[in-house]
């Protein structure tokens, strides 16, 4: 099982869609709200080299944005 972390904000539609995507596939994720957790926000910026949400961390592979193709590619490996 991959360890998946989704960094997002409560008001970002692609974060909601990313969460829905994993829950529809019955894949457990850790969701981190970077709006209320500044230090986790900094962690997200460090990992991804940018500040946009969502950021998806799949076993250390970083995907910026809700990019289904990349998520599927990463999950297959």
């Amino acid at each position: 099982m991959s360890k998946i972390i989704v960094y997002g904000t409560p008001t970002c539609p692609y974060c909601t869609r990313a969460k829905e995507y994993f829950s529809n596939k019955n894949i457990d994720i850790e969701y981190i709200d970077v709006a209320s957790n500044t230090s986790k926000g900094e962690e997200m910026v460090q990992k991804s080299g940018q500040m946009g949400v969502p950021v998806i961390d799949i076993d250390g592979s970083i995907i910026v944005g809700f990019d289904k193709e990349k998520i599927e590619e990463t999950l297959k490996v």
């Binding site: 008001t11 709006a35 080299g49």
Partner: peptide, 16 residues
């Protein structure tokens, strides 16, 4: 995405 954004609703919260 490194400071320039087009959606304040989505990306605003990180600028606390």
């Amino acid at each position: 995405n490194k400071g320039v954004f087009y959606c304040a609703i989505c990306d605003g919260p990180i600028f606390k």
